[in-house]
């Protein structure tokens, strides 16, 4: 009985020592290898999210690296109320928003490019372009339409429908209520549909 209890405690201790929060504590105490473990664990998530936001590999890599640098510099400000990934994604969201603001002109060009792409796909020779679209073309169209969305709509859609985050986590990332997060996701989906509907043959009112 005592042995089983001890084993359970050891397992819990091992699990706790491996958790994000424990690694953050160790990194805060100066153990850099703990922070590297966090990097290895979450870099794919951060990079994928950043890529979905900016749609460029080099930009996504820069944002990912900058996010981890900022996380390391601000480890002392991390509180255990939120999950580490939530905190990290909040940093990435801010960085992506900043990047979007910095590249307003480029975004405008891409928006026009996306609009042109949609026209090309809807004004074709075939009667029903949806049937003729290949899967990769549809993905490219979705990518362009997603890139044409405003940053706040894009963030909401990516977090919920691509990264499949829960609403409470999205609310923590946005710093709003859960109802507010649901509303943002809903508006983002509707805005995405407005841009992608011509691709799929729906007649706009």
């Amino acid at each position: 009985m005592i042995g089983a209890r001890t084993l359970e405690g050891l397992a819990r201790t091992a699990h706790d020592s491996d958790s994000d929060e424990a690694l953050v504590l160790r990194a805060r105490d100066g153990e850099y290898s703990a922070f590297e473990t966090l990097f290895h664990r979450h870099r794919a998530l951060v990079y994928r999210f950043a890529y979905q936001m900016v749609q460029r590999r080099d930009d996504a890599e820069d944002i990912t690296q900058e996010a981890f640098v900022r996380a390391y510099q601000n480890l002392g400000r991390y509180r255990d109320e939120a999950k580490f990934t939530t905190w990290l994604l909040r940093i990435v969201t801010n960085l992506c928003t900043d990047r979007t603001r910095m590249h307003q002109r480029r975004t405008g060009l891409e928006t026009r490019e996306a609009a042109g792409g949609l026209t090309w796909m809807t004004v074709g020779d075939t009667d029903d372009p949806v049937q003729n679209l290949e899967q990769d073309q549809r993905r490219a169209a979705l990518k362009a339409a997603l890139n044409a969305l405003p940053a706040h709509h894009r963030t909401a859609v990516v977090l919920r429908d691509i990264e499949e985050r829960e609403y409470d986590e999205i609310a923590a990332i946005f710093g709003c209520s859960i109802g507010g997060a649901k509303l943002r996701v809903l508006r983002g989906r509707r805005a995405l549909r407005d841009r992608i509907a011509p691709l799929l043959g729906e007649v706009q009112p």
Binding site: Y32, E36, F39, H40, R43, A44, Y47, R48, Y51, Q52, R57, A60, E61, T64, Q65, E66, F68, V69, Y72, Q73, R138, R139, L142, K143, L146, V157, D161, I162, E163, R189, L192, R193, I196, L200
Partner: peptide, 28 residues
């Protein structure tokens, strides 16, 4: 529904990154 499926598919359509711990350490 189609849009949702496309969004889920887009999750995997991410090119591999070239991040490394050494690069991060240098940046820090």
């Amino acid at each position: 529904r189609q849009m949702r499926q496309d969004l889920l598919d887009a999750r995997d359509a991410v090119p591999p990154d070239q991040l490394s711990p050494e690069r991060l350490r240098e940046s820090i």
